Simulated assay, not measured.
Amino acid sequence: MSDLHYPVKGQCQCGHVSFTLKAAPKMVIACHCKECQKLSTSAFSITSIVNADDIEINGELKTTRRVADSGNENVGYFCPSCGNRIYQLNPAAPEMIKFKAAGCLEDTRMIVPTMHVWTSEKQGWVIIPDDVQQFDKQR
């Protein structure tokens, strides 16, 4: 991916929210928990962890709040028109963004999971490469 250049632009499904990723994600996590399966309507969700300063988001967003079993609060930001989840954050650590819409970027080559979490709840057909970190639960 040495030919991948930042910034990389993207937008939600309907185009009302746009974003620019200015630097590579710190890590890319595939979460296999049942909640992420519901959220993504797929076998897992992908989250790119980025510094808040490394992403620019334009457009109106709606929010949802959820408290995890750990007690951590997650605030989800999504497009009010198409419903695409754009990002999440923990209000106690707003400098770190959990970018959920990396699949909407114009170039998605950086979205390669470096870690898989909640593998204890993964779908049986999902095969995780041996050289990628795996955790039965949240890290």
Rank of each mutant, 00 (worst) to 15 (best):
C82Y: 14
L61A: 11
N72A: 05
E73N: 09
R66A: 09
C82P: 09
I86G: 02
L61C: 12
N74C: 10
T64Y: 14
L61H: 09
G59V: 03
E73W: 08
Y87S: 02
N58C: 10
V67I: 13
F78G: 03
C79N: 07
R65T: 15
V75R: 03
C79P: 11
N72F: 02
E60N: 07
T64E: 04
D69S: 13
P80E: 03
V67W: 00
T63E: 13
N72H: 07
T64Q: 09
N72Y: 00
K62D: 09
F78D: 05
I86A: 06
N58I: 08
N84S: 15
Y77I: 02
R66K: 13
N74P: 01
Y87P: 01
Y77L: 07
A68D: 05
V75I: 09
T64D: 06
G59D: 04
G83R: 13
K62P: 03
Y87L: 09
N84G: 08
F78R: 00
N74Q: 09
K62Q: 14
C79D: 08
R85Q: 12
I86K: 02
D69A: 12
P80R: 10
N58P: 00
G59N: 02
G76M: 06
E60D: 14
C82Q: 11
G76K: 05
T64S: 12
Y87M: 10
V67H: 00
R85H: 10
N58K: 11
C82M: 12
E73I: 14
E60P: 02
P80C: 12
Y77E: 04
G76V: 02
E60H: 04
R66I: 12
R85L: 15
K62Y: 09
Q88G: 08
V75H: 01
G59F: 04
G76F: 06
Q88H: 15
G83I: 15
Q88D: 15
A68I: 03
V67D: 07
R66S: 12
N72M: 02
R65G: 11
N58H: 01
R85I: 15
N74F: 13
V67K: 00
I86P: 04
V75F: 04
S81L: 06
K62R: 12
E60C: 06
N72K: 01
N84D: 15
N74I: 12
T63G: 03
F78C: 01
C79E: 11
G76P: 01
N84Q: 13
N72L: 00
G83T: 15
P80I: 05
V67M: 07
S81T: 02
Y87I: 07
T63S: 13
V75E: 04
R65L: 11
R65F: 10
N84I: 11
G71D: 02
L61R: 10
D69L: 05
N72S: 06
N74D: 07
S81N: 14
G76Y: 00
Y77F: 15
